[in-house]
């Protein structure tokens, strides 16, 4: 272990905008600190690397108990967004815009650019074979930087000794 570089692998299984960022932020921090990074995209997480989906990730207010009215700038304390309001047309787009604006103000890059940074910084990215088959996808559906489609077994081989984080 002494001569082996530290290695962190992230399994990204969610395609919601808010769940896209944890692996990106931590992965980038890891690269900055000289830690090897592998990203494995499975199931909905493949939206992060799909050309047609990466720029359109969304966050839905329905059934999200942490999303409060006060986040929209209305001083209402712990009052949540009623689920019945969340189902109205446009509410998901509204919440998505709100989050994208906040991220932009903080200087956080959009998901596509973030993935490019990670790839340029040396992170390795792979899509899950079973999910790819399930969604009828092929390698050309993925953004540049994705190193291929691998099986769960391949993932186990390439992450021997790594710390694994499931998101």
């Amino acid at each position: 272990m002494t001569n082996e570089n530290r290695h962190i692998a992230f399994i990204c299984s969610k395609g919601n905008l808010d769940m896209a960022y944890p692996a990106l932020v931590m992965g980038w921090a890891a690269l900055g600190n000289g830690i090897d990074v592998t990203l494995f995209f499975t199931f909905w997480g493949m939206d992060l690397i799909r050309k047609t989906r990466v720029d359109h990730l969304e966050i839905a207010p329905v059934a999200n108990t942490s999303m409060k009215m006060s986040m929209m700038g209305i001083d209402t304390g712990n009052l949540g967004i009623p689920n019945v309001m969340g189902v109205l047309p446009g509410m998901t787009a509204f919440a998505t815009n709100l989050m994208n604006d906040k991220m932009k103000k903080l200087g956080v890059p959009p998901v596509r650019e973030y993935l490019q940074m990670l790839s340029d910084g040396g992170a390795k990215m792979f899509a899950c074979k079973m999910s790819v088959d399930m969604f009828d996808l092929k390698e050309s559906d993925f953004i540049e930087g994705v190193g291929g489609i691998v099986t769960a077994g391949d993932f186990m081989d390439m992450t021997e000794g790594a710390q694994i984080i499931f998101i």
Partner: peptide
């Protein structure tokens, strides 16, 4: 990013 990581490999931030 590539250039920065090439100039300061293995942990440019630190």
């Amino acid at each position: 990013t590539k250039e920065l990581f090439a100039l300061f490999p293995k942990g440019p931030a630190k």
